[in-house]
């Protein structure tokens, strides 16, 4: 039983690490700031959850597992807020590359902050 749990834990840790690696690659490769925000904030959500799950399966200790649970909860509560604030600031500062957008509904809105 413990061996099976260990192997699941190893699989979770490796997949989580690979997802984080792909986030790094995407961060280098994606063309503009908004696209990079996807890579910078998201793949870790699943990657981190898998790493935490792997740790929890390996440690199997109530004190450690509750701490890991809190890490997951706070990461999932705060990551979208950070991503939204940076994305919003970038768009308003004119950092979004219009040539990459096939649809831009926000450009039509008479937003007081965008009015020049």
């Amino acid at each position: 039983m413990n061996t099976v749990l260990d192997w699941i834990a190893y699989a979770c840790l490796v997949i989580g690490a690979l997802l984080s690696l792909s986030a790094g690659v995407a961060l280098m490769r994606f063309p503009d700031l908004l696209s990079r925000m996807h890579a910078a904030t998201k793949p870790q959500v699943l990657g981190l959850l898998l790493v935490l799950l792997g740790c929890a399966l390996r440690l199997r200790d109530a004190v450690d597992v509750t701490t890991l649970l809190l890490v997951a909860v706070f990461q999932m509560a705060t990551a979208p807020v950070a991503a939204h604030m940076i994305g919003r600031a970038a768009y308003r500062a004119g950092q979004a590359r219009a040539d990459l957008l096939v649809v831009d509904d926000l450009a039509d809105v008479a937003d007081p902050a965008n009015r020049r």
């Binding site: 925000m37 904030t41 699943l46 509560a77 979208p80």
Partner: peptide, 13 residues
């Protein structure tokens, strides 16, 4: 929040 946590979508405004 749910939309932001899923990769590929990001709330701009």
């Amino acid at each position: 929040e749910a939309l932001s946590l899923v990769p590929g979508s990001l709330i701009v405004d």
